Computed example of a mutant assay.
Amino acid sequence: MLLAVIIGCEIGFWVVLGAGLASRYLLRWRPFSTVLLLCVPLIDLVLLIATVAHLRSGATADWSHGLAAAYLGFSVAFGHSMMRWADQRFAHRFAGGPPPWTPPKYGRERTRYEWREWGKGVLGWAVACLLLLAGIWYVADPARTEQLWAWIGRLTTVIVIWLVAFPVSHTIWPAKPKPSS
């Protein structure tokens, strides 16, 4: 059941975001679009309430509870930049706005970009791990929270791999433009 709520929240995120952007740029209903866009974080609140209610009902935490925590953590860390990304593209496509910002491809700017994105990832990891630890504390039964501990390990592995694969590799071997022929 919780997996369906997670999927519904992801779909809801994009539907509410799309409706907010459409009402802003296509219908020119700026106050209404502002209300819709301010409602986007409420979708995360729905997922948090559903997860807590499921654990409170006596459910044993499984991988979907860990996925919910990861979703919430990374939504907190990347939600604003995802909304900005969509806003720029929508404004450009439908309202004659400037071309959307693109990340730098080379040099120190690219390295700074990779470190900044990884920093957001660390924030997402931290929020997710705090939610997982809160779930472990709340349930207070090691037999029912084994999967939450496993998710802390998975998320930590991912954030370390990300560190090595992108920020560190770009720091050591910064991308350079291809020589023109």
Score class of each variant (00 low, 15 high):
residue 18 G to E: 04
residue 163 L to C: 04
residue 100 P to C: 08
residue 134 A to G: 14
residue 150 A to S: 15
residue 104 P to M: 11
residue 106 Y to S: 12
residue 70 A to P: 03
residue 156 T to S: 14
residue 167 P to H: 06
residue 151 W to I: 03
residue 3 L to P: 05
residue 92 H to G: 07
residue 120 K to M: 10
residue 75 S to A: 11
residue 155 L to F: 00
residue 119 G to H: 02
residue 40 V to G: 01
residue 7 I to D: 03
residue 45 L to T: 13
residue 31 P to V: 07
residue 174 P to S: 06
residue 14 W to S: 12
residue 71 Y to C: 04
residue 87 D to P: 02
residue 41 P to Q: 09
residue 65 H to F: 07
residue 43 I to C: 08
residue 38 L to V: 15
residue 92 H to P: 00
residue 97 G to K: 08
residue 45 L to Q: 04
residue 73 G to H: 03
residue 129 C to D: 11
residue 51 T to K: 06
residue 19 A to F: 11
residue 137 W to P: 01
residue 1 M to H: 03
residue 113 Y to P: 09
residue 132 L to N: 00
residue 97 G to I: 06
residue 28 R to E: 15
residue 109 E to H: 14
residue 68 A to E: 01
residue 48 L to G: 08
residue 92 H to I: 02
residue 165 A to E: 02
residue 120 K to H: 13
residue 77 A to C: 07
residue 136 I to E: 09
residue 34 T to D: 15
residue 135 G to W: 05
residue 38 L to W: 14
residue 49 I to E: 10
residue 78 F to E: 07
residue 143 A to C: 07
residue 144 R to N: 13
residue 52 V to K: 04
residue 100 P to H: 04
residue 89 R to H: 12
residue 133 L to Q: 11
residue 167 P to D: 00
residue 11 I to K: 07
residue 131 L to Y: 04
residue 117 E to N: 11
residue 110 R to T: 06
residue 91 A to S: 15
residue 120 K to G: 12
residue 103 P to K: 11
residue 3 L to G: 03
residue 21 L to A: 08
residue 103 P to T: 00
residue 118 W to K: 08
residue 21 L to R: 03
residue 34 T to V: 13
residue 52 V to S: 07
residue 52 V to A: 08
residue 6 I to P: 01
residue 84 R to L: 14
residue 157 T to G: 13
residue 65 H to W: 02
residue 169 S to Q: 07
residue 172 I to Q: 04
residue 168 V to R: 01
residue 160 V to C: 00
residue 68 A to I: 00
residue 81 S to T: 11
residue 89 R to Y: 06
residue 84 R to F: 12
residue 94 F to L: 11
residue 80 H to T: 13
residue 39 C to I: 09
residue 18 G to H: 10
residue 18 G to C: 07
residue 92 H to Y: 14
residue 59 A to N: 01
residue 138 Y to L: 14
residue 4 A to E: 09
residue 15 V to I: 15
residue 101 W to I: 10
residue 49 I to C: 11
residue 162 W to Y: 06
residue 78 F to W: 10
residue 54 H to G: 09
residue 127 V to R: 08
residue 44 D to Q: 13
residue 114 E to Q: 09
residue 130 L to T: 10
residue 17 L to S: 13
residue 114 E to G: 05
residue 26 L to M: 15
residue 108 R to V: 12
residue 173 W to E: 05
residue 93 R to L: 15
residue 106 Y to Q: 14
residue 139 V to K: 00
residue 136 I to H: 01
residue 65 H to V: 04
residue 158 V to Q: 03
